[in-house]
């Protein structure tokens, strides 16, 4: 179902939004040998029982998709981890929040392509939800951070066409910067 790892990240952050989080932290770190991702939220969390079910590849709380009881976010994550000998974990406490982490080998032949982080970030930043989303992004040690609060402060309503366009440029140019190779050329930034 998921074409790219960025789609998976989008889905996992959407889970945090759906859990009513007011603060979401997303960290996406790429190095030569590792892809490290952490999604932490202060949403409604899960009871031990629910957490066990959520790890089950054939569970979705059934509130969203009336005709489909299988969630596509977490199962895809655990399946990918297994297929590529990566690591994935989820910790959650009811009424406190949830933290999902994974570490994949970027070179593994079965790993889906990374995808386009700019478009994932723009999607999540302009998602209609009240809370804040902070992103910490790094590629081979080069880093930038961006948060929904600071974007809103600079641009006003993030759903305005004008704001959306500027926000996309902002994230795109920061992505280009950290994806630059030492010789000045750009790492291929995949589209889609």
């Amino acid at each position: 179902m998921h074409a790219t790892l960025c789609d998976l990240i989008t889905d996992l952050v959407q889970n945090s939004i759906e859990a009513g989080a007011s603060e979401i932290n997303l960290k996406v770190e790429e190095t030569q040998t590792n892809l490290n991702v952490v999604i932490a939220d202060n949403g409604k969390g899960m009871s031990a029982e629910l957490l066990k079910k959520a790890k089950d590849p054939f569970y979705s709380d059934g509130e969203k998709h009336k005709h489909r009881k299988v969630g596509l976010g977490l199962p895809f994550l655990f399946q990918t981890a297994e297929m590529t000998q990566g690591e994935a974990s989820i910790e959650s406490t009811e009424n406190i929040g949830t933290m999902v982490r994974f570490r994949f080998d970027p070179e593994h032949i079965d790993l889906p392509i990374f995808g386009n982080f700019t478009s994932a970030a723009v999607t999540l930043m302009s998602y209609g939800f009240e809370g804040n989303l902070s992103i910490e992004r790094s590629v081979n040690g080069e880093t930038y951070t961006v948060s929904k609060n600071e974007l809103t402060e600079a641009l006003g309503d993030l759903n305005d066409l004008e704001s959306l366009t500027l926000m996309k440029q902002f994230i795109e140019t920061n992505e280009e910067e950290i994806n630059k190779r030492p010789d000045g050329s750009n790492r291929s930034v995949q589209s889609v």
Binding site: N116, S119, T123, S126, Y127, D157, N159, D160, L161, T165
Partner: peptide
């Protein structure tokens, strides 16, 4: 996502700035 990018591009090209785009689950 491709549809979203197409909206953004087409609206900008035609300068229909008074538009809001929201994404939902």
């Amino acid at each position: 996502k491709e549809a979203f990018d197409a909206f953004l591009d087409e609206l900008n090209t035609r300068e229909i700035m008074d538009t809001k785009i929201t994404q939902t689950g």
